[in-house]
Design a protein around this nucleic acid. Structure first.
Length: 493
RNA sequence: GGGCCGUUAGCUCAGUUGGGAGAGCACCUGACUUUUAAUCAGGGUGUCACAGGUUCGAGACCUGUACGGCCUACCA
């Protein structure tokens, strides 16, 4: 017994056969179009305003609807600029076109030549004199009214999602605009865009489980980068004063609505700047990009409206945490003290956590959920920040900020540590705290980076900004998978 | 890793108390010269995720498995 799908595809294959028998190629190499659908509609508007005679144009795209009604027919043609209606009248079509129109199906790509006019109901329409099948489709498209809603299929066959859900296309257009907006901003500030290796001999610049790979001819273990940080700072050592990279980074950790194993980061480094300068640049850049992409500083996100108008409040981390939780971390300066306080408050925590992790957990519970509106959390304890420079008047606090919006961390930045001895000490302490967990401590200490620092790196302000989360905020998507074209999914059996 | 939910036609979904596998779109046939979710008439194209079990009888109840979603945990 044949399934419906087999039925449809075999019917369409028969159509292909019939076209070939008539000497028509169902998969031609090229089609010359004169206009996009959007341009054609625009042209009709001016044609009507100026009362000029319609001219022949040609369009190309995918047929998304077919309304055959006796002798005349209508179709919708979709290209990347939008949809346009086609109108077919037998007396207008030559015989070759007629043959092809007979075999035309929803889903096919077609080129249509004709003149623009407006139908009785006022829709801009191409009166077709010549139709060419440009690619015969043999599988039926998803249902036209509800679109494709099966989440798994939307991710696994993103092309179907893009064809049948216009909102999905919008998200990725917005994503592209965010990236070009950031590039424009950074370029205009005199930053140089650079590319650094994805394959690292040691996975540094962040503390995350790396993906491990192997280079055969070098017979060496390599890691996919977990941050852009260390190579970029080497470039600051090398005398580039302002550099940035928009790059993919890889973390071998859990997958969730906010985490994908590969994601895109902007990292920038500016010599002679500190974290205050970076903070100012961050709010300027983000608000500028938001305005450029959405047309406004205010965006809707879930149930709330986020206002990116600068300046954003600077919230002292210690003070904010104390306000929200009643805990002054300076009074619980080691892991045991903090654990007993958390026990007292009936908070759950991993008993193996170090002090920094516990504090990070407290921020997640008490502070982050309140940061719907853009804000900077500033001045982190040194234990949480091994690559940041301490404040001039307090060697337990570093000059670091994280930017939040929509209750998500979107940026992390600091005055970069440039003292090679201090950096080495911090690396060692970090590696020691991680001992016992081989996967994570593997390749933490980047001696080559320490070597670079020992030649001298000027005072530098660095920034890391999560592009995917920013796009989530601007497109009102609550899952990172909806802003990544091909998100990582489990294997299918 | 834990909890909850889901898997029925190409797509979107319904299926009541355990008794004939259904609807809309898509598709096929026919009618129709300004439709636009075209309409009208006819046509059902299926491994009810998989494997067991209970039962005279299972899409439905039970057990297990696979896949997926959400939450949670993990996560610089």
């Amino acid at each position: 017994m044949t399934s419906r799908l087999e039925n449809i595809t075999s019917l369409r294959q028969e159509k292909i056969q019939r076209l070939r028998e008539k000497g028509l190629n169902p998969y031609p190499n090229k089609y010359t179009r004169t206009h996009t659908t959007a341009e054609a509609i625009e042209m009709l508007n001016t044609q009507e305003a100026d009362e000029t005679a319609p001219v022949e144009i040609s369009l190309a795209g995918r047929i998304t609807a077919l309304r055959r009604m006796g002798k005349i027919s209508f179709a919708d043609l979709l290209d990347s600029t939008g949809k346009i209606q086609l109108f077919f009248k037998p007396e207008n079509l030559n015989s070759l076109s007629e043959e092809q129109f007979k075999e035309l199906d929803i889903g096919d790509f077609a080129g249509a030549r004709g003149k623009m006019f407006r139908t009785r109901s006022g829709e801009a329409t191409l009166q077709v004199s010549c139709i060419d099948i440009l690619c015969k489709s043999i599988e039926p498209l998803p249902e036209k009214w509800h679109g494709l809603t099966d989440i798994e299929t939307r991710y696994r066959q993103r092309y179907l999602d893009l064809i049948s859900n216009p909102g999905s296309k919008e998200v990725f257009i917005a994503r592209s605009k965010v990236i070009s907006g950031i590039r424009e901003f950074m370029d205009s500030k005199g930053f140089l865009e650079v590319e650094t290796p994805v394959l690292h001999s040691s996975a540094g610049g962040a503390l995350a489980k790396p993906f491990v790979t192997h280079h055969y001819s070098l017979d060496r273990q390599l890691y996919l980068r977990i941050a852009l940080e260390l190579p970029l700072k080497r470039l600051i050592v090398g005398g580039f004063d302002k550099v940035y990279e928009l790059g993919r980074i890889f973390r071998n950790e859990g997958i969730s609505t906010r985490h994908n194993p590969e994601f895109t980061m902007l990292e920038s480094y500016e010599a002679y700047a500190d974290y205050q300068d970076v903070m100012q640049m961050t709010e300027e850049m983000v608000s500028c990009v938001v305005k450029k992409v959405t047309g406004s500083y205010k965006v809707k996100f879930g149930d709330s409206e986020i206002d990116f108008t600068p300046p954003w409040p600077r919230l002292d981390l210690r003070q904010t945490l104390e306000e929200k939780s009643g805990i002054d971390f300076c009074k619980y300066r080691d892991a045991d003290k903090l654990k007993s306080k958390m026990k007292q408050l009936n908070l759950q925590f991993d008993p193996n956590s170090n002090w920094a992790k516990l504090l990070d957990g407290l921020l997640g519970i008490y502070v982050e959920p309140h940061l719907t509106q853009p804000a900077f959390l500033v001045d982190y304890p040194i234990e949480m920040s091994p690559l940041a420079k301490t404040k001039p008047d307090d060697d337990t606090i570093v000059e670091r900020f994280e930017a939040f919006a929509g209750c998500m961390e979107i940026a992390n930045a600091f005055s970069e540590l440039n003292d090679p001895f201090e950096q080495e000490k911090r690396f060692i302490r970090q590696a020691r705290e991680r001992h016992g967990d081989d996967e994570e401590s593997a390749g933490i200490i980047d001696y080559d980076f320490l070597k670079a620092l020992s030649f001298g790196m000027p005072p530098t302000g660095g920034l890391g900004l999560g592009i995917d989360r920013l796009v989530m905020l601007l497109t009102n998507q609550c899952s990172i998978r909806d802003v990544i074209l091909f998100p990582q999914l489990k294997d299918r059996g």
